[in-house]
Write a protein that binds this DNA or RNA. Structure first.
Length: 636
RNA sequence: GCUGAUGUGGCUCAGUGGUAGAGCAGCGCACUCGUAAUGCGCAGGCCGCCGGUUCAAAUCCGGCCAUCAGCUCCA
């Protein structure tokens, strides 16, 4: 009998008989691996465990611990769901059913819509299929066979998918029990491996993600090889929901959004404290770096927006109005205003770069379905700046902005992803200038040694951009900072500067934001800190808790002392027990609770309880003030 | 925008054709209290909006508005 050499991880080599299956190898290595292995990577290609080994190779077994293993597991789970749906609703047509980052979905086409009680039935049927423990069996077919088979079982979406495949591409079917589906695989050995699962939501999704196509019904689910893992997952989701900025914004009285103005947030006094701290910090840091601040109007003549290209490329997102029969637009961006400002004087090469910052309020018409708390709104304040410079200054300026973004984000403890977005379809200018601009951004990123993802076709209509993305509590990412390099606007507005040669030259512009939108940034901050803001940002830094009504006078005396030192403080004057007041302050996530009673009043002290550590003991008022000021002054 | 779900006091939610309910928050009174909820009482609601069915609608039907989830991840 012929033998094959199999190298495993850690360089271990084993010899087996040719034709042995991967599952047999896993079982041979250990019983545990035999039970936990879901698929295996053979010379870098992921395969079913039922595949046979007929030549020397490298094998790496994949379990639920591996991302690729989880994907296989979830993909198989989606097949189980499809099988259940076909059993219960045989008229349903199947579209696609992939694994996603967390779980899986399957898109179905059925005239009637699925209801939540249908989901329960599907779950029950899935449980049966799992208990029946069917093996996933692969069968390779030719393109013609595949189309014939799919026509026979009447799956038009699958036929469309196969027809789009290139000639000679490998095509396979997988079958478990009576259910057969077109699928590249691989799959887990059998349905019984799925020990816990839950169908999580129901949503519409266009066939092939194109809104011109039919809308299908998508069912999302998640599954695990252990029941305890599902429970952990569900508690994690619950915890994440508690951090939701929309919930915390209400509870902590930071902002509100009303039916009277969908997508137009109201900032409450406590929310404005955070806002102003952020913008104070922003102003200080920008002025240190040679930025000047300007302010441009919200409404400007429509003609300006035609000239800037917004009319042609951004009209759908703009609001328009009329003044004395003349057409005006509400600004969706600050750049044209900044450009008009640039043109108010003749500029010399000695003046460049000119860095004009603006906390500009912009309005954009977003589709109603995409509005989301402070994260996606219809009016927001950009911490914008436009840098006008000579071509030779491009790289230094871009690097300066990258450094500034990094400096800001590390202060809040954010990790971020960087993306480079290239020329979109509906854009203006020559390919040559676009290539030049894209290369400049890329060059700066490479010089900084930053890793980034390329986002084809996602640039602004006037230039490519570097985007900085931050994560929300549920792991969704939001674009915050961006740096856009623009050769188009200077051209359109005929911007110039006088060079050393005495001739007119064309400057280049950078559009950039650091926070992105103050609204979105505050939303991200709320979720990042779960509402427990660091002392310097906390809207209320300390709350004084008098033991009883007798201690009210002393409480107000301490309040005055703290206020004079610049500490944001309030007194809980309700006639309640101390435990009640502590609990309330704790839930409002106030960093310091100052308990004051007879002892403190006599000794001119406060008993300090911190949000994180609890009771930390009694100390003189002055000592407490010094400690807080030291902490809070770190950033301003 | 599209698909689905949801909309009842400041907040969280119960109420499925017959006079709108609870808990928390608020206000009042009593207690004067030492580190995560003291007790009693009071007040608070065009049941998202408009229309229809009905003797009667928070409840059933239609339209609209808003909110939530998804709509990129390609068998």
């Amino acid at each position: 009998m012929e033998q094959v050499k199999v190298s495993l991880k850690d360089g271990v080599e084993k010899v087996y008989q040719k034709g042995i299956t991967l599952l047999e190898i896993a079982e041979n290595i250990s019983r545990k691996l035999g039970k936990e292995a879901l698929a295996a990577k053979v010379d870098g290609v992921i395969k079913d465990l039922s595949s046979k080994v007929d030549k020397d190779c490298n094998v790496q077994f994949l379990t639920f611990e591996d991302e690729e293993g989880r994907k296989v597991f979830w993909h198989s789970s989606s097949h189980v769901m499809a099988q259940a749906v076909k059993r219960l609703f045989p008229e349903t047509k199947l579209a696609i059913g992939p694994a996603i980052d967390e779980g899986f979905y399957y898109d179905f086409d059925r005239d009637e819509s699925f209801t939540p009680s249908d989901l329960e039935k599907i779950e029950q049927e899935m449980a049966k299929i799992i208990a029946e423990d069917y093996a996933f069996c692969r069968k390779n077919v030719s393109k013609e066979e595949a189309i014939e088979e799919l026509n026979k079982i009447n799956e038009p979406y699958k036929v469309e998918l196969v027809e789009a495949l290139p000639e000679g591409a490998p095509i396979s079917f997988y079958q478990q029990g009576e259910f057969k589906d077109l699928c590249a695989g691989p799959h887990i050995p059998s349905t019984g491996r799925i020990k816990a699962f839950k169908l999580t939501s129901l949503a519409g999704a266009y066939w092939r993600g194109d809104e011109h196509n039919k809308m299908l019904q998508r069912i999302y689910g998640i599954s695990f090889p252990k029941k305890s893992m599902l429970d952990e997952y569900l508690t994690r989701i619950e915890e994440a929901k508690k951090r939701d900025h929309r919930k915390l914004g209400k509870e902590l009285d930071l902002f509100s959004i009303h039916e009277e103005g969908p997508g137009f947030p109201f900032f409450h006094p406590k929310g404005m404290i955070i806002w102003n701290l952020l913008t104070d910090f922003w102003r200080k840091e920008h002025s240190k770096r040679g930025y000047q601040e300007i302010k441009t109007p919200i409404i400007l003549n429509e003609e300006l927006w035609r000239r800037s290209g917004h009319w042609d490329h951004y009209k759908e997102n703009m609001y328009f109005t009329k003044i004395d029969d003349m057409n005006y637009a509400v600004k969706p961006m600050n750049c044209p205003g900044g450009i008009l400002m640039y043109k108010t004087d003749s500029r010399s090469y000695r003046d460049l770069p000119i860095r004009l910052g603006e906390l500009g309020l912009v309005h954009r018409h977003e589709l109603s379905g995409v509005l989301h708390g402070l994260m996606r709104v219809r009016c927001f304040t950009q911490d914008d700046a436009h840098i006008f410079m000579m071509p030779s200054q491009i790289e230094d300026e871009i690097i300066g902005v990258i450094d500034l973004v990094d400096y800001f984000y590390q202060i809040f403890g954010f990790e971020y992803n960087v993306e480079l977005s290239t020329r979109p379809e509906n854009s203006m200018g020559s390919d040559e200038l676009w290539d030049q601009a894209t290369a400049a951004l890329q060059g700066a990123l490479d010089k900084k040694g930053m890793s980034y993802k390329i986002n084809e076709g996602d640039g602004a209509f006037y230039g490519p951009k570097i985007d900085f993305h931050l994560k929300d509590s549920l792991g969704r990412t939001w674009q915050c900072g961006t740096i856009q390099l623009d050769f188009q606007m200077p051209e359109r507005f005929d911007l110039s500067y006088i060079g050393a040669d005495g001739e007119k030259h064309r400057p280049v512009m950078i559009h950039r934001v650091i926070f992105g939108s103050i609204e979105r940034f505050i939303g991200i901050l709320i979720e990042h800190y779960a509402g427990a803001f660091p002392v310097w940002l906390a809207p209320v830094q300390a709350r004084i808790l008098p033991i009883s009504e007798k201690h009210m006078d002393y409480a107000y005396k301490v309040k005055k002392q703290l206020e004079e030192a610049g500490i944001r403080v309030e007194v809980d004057e309700r006639n309640e027990k101390i435990g009640y007041k502590v609990r309330d302050a704790q839930m409002k996530k106030i960093p310091y609770m100052l308990v004051v009673g007879d002892k403190e009043a006599n000794e001119n002290t406060v008993s300090v309880r911190t949000r994180e550590k609890g009771d930390v003991g009694q100390k003189p008022v002055e000592t407490f003030i010094d400690e807080v000021l030291t902490l809070a002054s770190k950033f301003n």
